[in-house]
Each structure stands twice: as C-alpha cells, then as structure tokens.
Design a protein around this nucleic acid. Structure first.
Lengths: 249, 249
DNA sequence: GCAAAAGTGTTGTCGTTACACCCATGC
DNA sequence: GCATGGGTGTAACGACAACACTTTTGC
C-alpha cells in the first residue's frame, strides 16, 4: 500500500492508523416462542471462557459482509445466502479490545428455527450455543468485549424493524402460519399481542404474506388447522405494526 | 500490537488484514427550502478535482465518532457538540479505494442553516461547498469513491427518520415555527405537504415541539406572526408521520 | 381593503382496539 | 361433547386527508 497518510495531510505530522477489523454476528432465532441469540464461549485470551458473539477477522479479498457470511457459515452451518443479514453498526472504541486497535462491524442475522440450528464448534470458540435473550424484562448481558452493547443495539434494531418492515418472515420457515408469525412478534418484543387483531392486520397488509392454499394442524393435533402462508414480495409495511398495545392471548 | 492474527486462527495459515479507516460525513442542511449536502473538491489523487464527501483518516486515540466530529469541525467549523450525528453504515468493498485497503464508516450530520454554514477550506480538500441534493426527482450523483452510494443511503436514512423520530428539529435553529418544520419535511422528502394537517399533527404529537410563547414575523413582514417552538424531549414519534400523501401548498 | 401566511373547523373515510363469537379438528 | 387453537364480526374510537374557513399582521 502506498503511503496515503502523509500525502493526505499537508502538515505531514499526523499519520492515519492501521487497525484490524472483525465482523461480529448477532444471530437471532426463535425456539418454542423464546428469542435466542447464538453465543460462543471464547477458547482463548482475552476473555477466555466467557460468552461472546461469534465473529472473526476480515481477510484479504473480503469486505465486511463477506466476512460476516463466512463466519456465519463457519459457526452455525447455516447457508448465508438464505438468511437476512444486515448491518447494525461499527464499534471502534480505543479500548474495546485489550489486544490492540480492533474495530468491529456488527451484523444482525435472522434465522428460522432449523432442524439443527446449534452453532458448530468454531475455529476460535470453545463451544457455541443458543442463549435466551430475555431474562424477565431485561436483556441478557455479561459478554466479552463490548458485545453486550452490540447485542442490545441489535435487539433494538430487530424490534424496530418488525414495526416497519416484513422482516419477521425471516424468522419463519418458508411456509408458516399467522400464529407462528405472531409468536415472532411476541418473542422479539417480549410481550403478547391480541390474536384476532394481529391476524386481520397481517392478512390485510399488502405484500406481507401470501396464502399457499395448504394447511397445517396445530401442535398436539388439537384445534382447527391453520392456513399456511409464505413471505410476500413487500419489504416495507405501509401501515406499521406499532408496539404499544398489549392484550391478552 | 501483539500478533492476534495467527493466535486466533489455530490453522495458522490465515492472517487477518490490517486496513486504514476513514470517517466520512454526509452533512445535510436546508437553505431556502432546498436540501443541501456539504461536498469537497478533492485536492489530490485519487479522484483529484472531483466532488466527494468530507472525511478523513482515523487517528491514534480516536474512535470513529471522534474522527467524524473532528472532521466535521475541520471542514465546516460547526460545533460537533450541537449537531445530530449518527452512523449510516460501514463501506468496505475491496476495490473502493484505489490506494489500497480502506474502509469507511459513514456518518449523517444534520445542521440548521447557520449564518455561515459554508464548509471551510479543509486540509485534504481544494474547496468545499453546499450542493443541492435533488435535481428534479433524482439524487445528485457522480462523487468520488463509493460516495454516491453512501449519499443515497444517508438520504434514505434521513427520510426514514423523519417519519418515526423527532430528528427534523435538528435542521432548525433553537427556536422555529411550524412552517419551518414543515419545510424540513418537504425539503428532505422532496415533496409538498398539506399545511393545515401538518400543523395539527406536529402540534398534537407528544414531546415533539414545545411552545415558547414568543412569535416571529414572516419573511417580508407580510402575514400573521407565527408561534415559535423549541424541540421537545421526545425522540420517537408515537404516531409516525408517514410519507404517501402529498397535497398542495 | 388587500395580500400573505398562520391557524382552526368540519366531514368522510379508514385503521385500530377490545372483545364477543363462530369454525374446524382430535380426542 | 369438550378442549384447543384458527378465524370472523362488530361497535366505539381515534387518526387522517381534503378543503373551506377564520385570524392576524404589514402595507
């Protein structure tokens, strides 16, 4: 690399700083109506033995999204091409990594509850597992580095996006019921919603869900079979689904 | 810095890559009802003589936000402590900078139309100026690097935030009229809104604006004086102001 | 009075809420 | 029948779009 530093500062006295870059992942899924995040146990210093977000260093020829997708596949075995993946933000505090100057670009990945969603043993992790996000009304904390801040920001972003976008379907398998979609909102918002009004709202929302004509029996085979839907083409909800009203089941 | 690269990859064959980091700024303001973005003309290669977003390299002891604030002050003379400044995202494509591996963290800065808002001559810029964002219905493009993509993303972010947050007041001086606030929406959304309905909506919105009891005469001293307001404490709008209906003046 | 901009009234429409109710199924 | 979850009806309420109208000022 040419010396772009002194060239860009006529004073000549201030050099830019080279840093290492990581892509960290907040991978969310819902299991049995509970919001889970994929965490690894660090296998080495710093923070050895502590929970952290999965992630890893940027390599030659990769941009941040490439690195995030690679880490996603390495640590979970999930196909990155089929998952919703979007930036949360960058975290760059000087002291955030005791090894030196490392900034991270955090990504939010949303996954359906797949048959085998448990993160595999990763290259830089001792083990990996799904962990409950909420403990009561609060968000799980006590992660390595500044990862609890990243987690909180990512959860907030996911909560916001449910209001204004159709991203909730990313938590679902290709075919899903309206009840399952409601469970997504309830899990991510950590609340409960009125069943009837939710049903009408998403059904009437343009481009949100598309009926497949097929049905599925409820768990336990007790009750009326539900209509199955797939995700529509829409991205933004014209009428946002606002948090604020919580009703009984 | 210790060698964290090989240490974090047991295979030992893949090293992390060190990169340079810049903070780039999309500084928006409104002048006479027109949305403007601060652009510099590059004073050196690459892209010498072309328009670009103001920005610069991260220095020792700075995080991204520090660097953004420093650049903001250097290039515009604006007080970063008084401006709304938020992340847009990171841009990290391998070929985005011909000098080598440089990633950027883009920030959106929103400024009121100050008495002397013209960006000052910056250290790495030949000149700086406010440039119209919209040309007809389209967004101005043809910037250096991937800055036109950054600009488009930042504009979209600003447009979205106007719907759901009280950020519009950041475009205004400490005291403003409802008409001026409406001009903010009209400039950023590049549309026109119904005067009467907008008036009622923001007036009734909780925590958005607070009356000061003072009034100001319209430009030209023709017409009824308008009530003056200041920004309220609220951040999120409970009832979003949705784009979609455009009415006459 | 007139022009201009601020601000209010009014009405129909549409989305939302709360809650009652019906439907389809397995047991 | 009964339990269970899916799905619809409905009436009160609130937000909103459209647009007419009034108010307050300088000239």
């Amino acid at each position: 690399m040419t010396d772009v530093g002194t060239a860009s500062t006529p004073m000549g006295s201030i050099d830019p700083i080279e840093v290492l870059v990581t892509a960290d992942l907040v991978i969310l899924t819902i299991q049995n109506g509970i919001l889970k995040v994929a965490l690894v146990v660090r296998g080495e210093d710093p923070f050895e033995g502590q929970f952290a977000l999965p992630g890893g260093f940027l390599r030659v020829g990769e941009n941040n999204l490439d690195a995030a997708k690679r880490e996603l596949e390495e640590e979970t075995g999930l196909d990155p091409g089929r998952l919703a993946l979007e930036q949360v933000g960058s975290y760059s505090d000087v002291d955030r990594d005791p090894r030196g100057r490392v900034i991270t670009c955090a990504f939010l990945a949303i996954a359906p509850d797949l048959p085998n969603p448990r993160p595999r043993r990763g290259s830089d992790a001792r083990s990996a597992s799904w962990v409950n996000v909420f403990h009561g009304a609060d968000i799980k904390v006590a992660l390595a580095f500044d990862h609890d801040q990243i987690l909180r920001d990512a959860i907030r972003q996911a909560q916001r996006k449910l209001q204004y976008s159709t991203i909730a379907t990313a938590f679902c398998l290709p075919e899903f019921t309206i009840g399952e979609l409601r469970e997504v909102y309830e899990a991510v918002w950590n609340t409960s919603l009125d069943r009837a009004n939710f049903h009408r709202k998403v059904k009437n929302a343009s481009e949100f869900i598309v009926p497949t004509g097929r049905t599925r029996h409820p768990k336990g085979n007790r009750g009326r079979p539900a209509e199955l839907y797939r995700a529509g083409e829409g991205v933004e909800l014209l009428n946002p689904i606002l948090r604020g009203t919580l009703a009984r089941s």
